[in-house]
Design a protein around this nucleic acid. Structure first.
Lengths: 185, 185
DNA sequence: TTGCTCATGTAAACTGTTACATGATTGC
DNA sequence: GCAATCATGTAACAGTTTACATGAGCAA
């Protein structure tokens, strides 16, 4: 269980409201951990009552007030304890792999458009990552290295890029295999 | 939701009991879809009452009887309908990426052993996949191609291999980044 | 006799998804 | 006037995880 930890990391990078966190989970953090606003509000409430975060009501002109959360001492401790604690093997959930394996009992060709759709989604995401990498980490001089926070954000982004490239290559392999089966019939 | 579909695929490959399915979810299918025996028993019961699977009581000598499930017509239909139906974007859950990004607010060096542990797990899994690939798909003659089921199992396995190789390379990148931050202090 | 494998389950707690609800402001 | 954005929630349901429970056989 790590939604609270993902929220702590995000709040350490910048304090914000539940709504703002939900936005961030559609971008940046959301690329390696998904959550909806309902989940976030629920967890924020629990973390507040556990003393992991502080809240501050921020009045805004012409807009509803927002409750801005920031990480408190116990939250920081909980995060650094979690960093050290071994995390179990990730649970994999790959619909498409199940579908590909299931295709042999149905019509393999029927899967082609679905695989192409996924390929498109991964291509879009890759382009998005590459643009972000160029924007945020493009102009680095070797004699003036970035700080730790930046370096670590960059290595996570490189992971996202490697993942998307791997997926696109694999989906091409799947498409070639499906086409081969089709041609053979 | 696709646990029922993963179970259908597994039962089409070979009928079996809930217990046997739970074993398979620790290997083969489990590499791209995880499930515990509790989930499996619950879903099997629902699928049985929906007529997706047939059950047969198999007495065994010296062992408890087992209830062997096999896919029925409606189950096969449900599977092929799902194969055609677009599946939403996969929800990513990567603990380690959250940890790496969180490390800048704690001690980056404290994360090194955790990353090394994950690297070891991925190396083991890669070796296991490669052994399986050599065993099941090693001796192929180009003039006698395998059947569809085999080809599709093979392409899924290639995906697993590509994933593990990508992860190991990324974890090396993470380790180099963490070491670089450590050396700089 | 201790622990492992085979075999099937229940119960409770937690997490995730979908739908609904409110209310102000900004831009077309 | 209509839709989108900002901002915070509730409610119901579905799915997942963890712990507990039973009981037989088999091997060190």
């Amino acid at each position: 269980m790590a939604l609270e930890h993902a929220i702590l990391v995000s709040l350490l990078e910048k304090p914000g409201s539940g709504y703002e966190l939900a936005r961030r989970f559609e971008r940046s953090i959301g690329y390696f951990w998904t959550a909806t606003h309902q989940q976030i509000y629920r967890v924020l409430k629990r973390m507040e009552s556990d003393g992991w975060v502080d809240v501050r009501d921020v009045p805004q002109n012409g807009r509803p007030d927002k409750r801005e959360y920031s990480v408190a001492g116990p939250g920081r401790d909980a995060l650094s304890a979690w960093l050290r604690r071994p995390t179990g093997p990730e649970s994999v959930r790959n619909d498409l792999a199940v579908k590909v394996r299931g295709a042999s009992f149905g019509d393999p060709a029927a899967l082609i458009s679905e695989v192409e759709r996924h390929r498109g989604a991964h291509t879009d995401r890759l382009a998005h990552y590459l643009a972000g990498a160029a924007r945020d980490f493009g102009e680095r001089s070797p004699d003036r290295p970035l700080d730790a926070e930046c370096e670590l954000q960059h290595v996570v982004l490189r992971g996202g890029i490697a993942y998307e490239q791997m997926m696109i290559a694999w989906l091409d392999d799947v498409l070639a295999t499906l086409a081969g089966l089709e041609a053979r019939r």
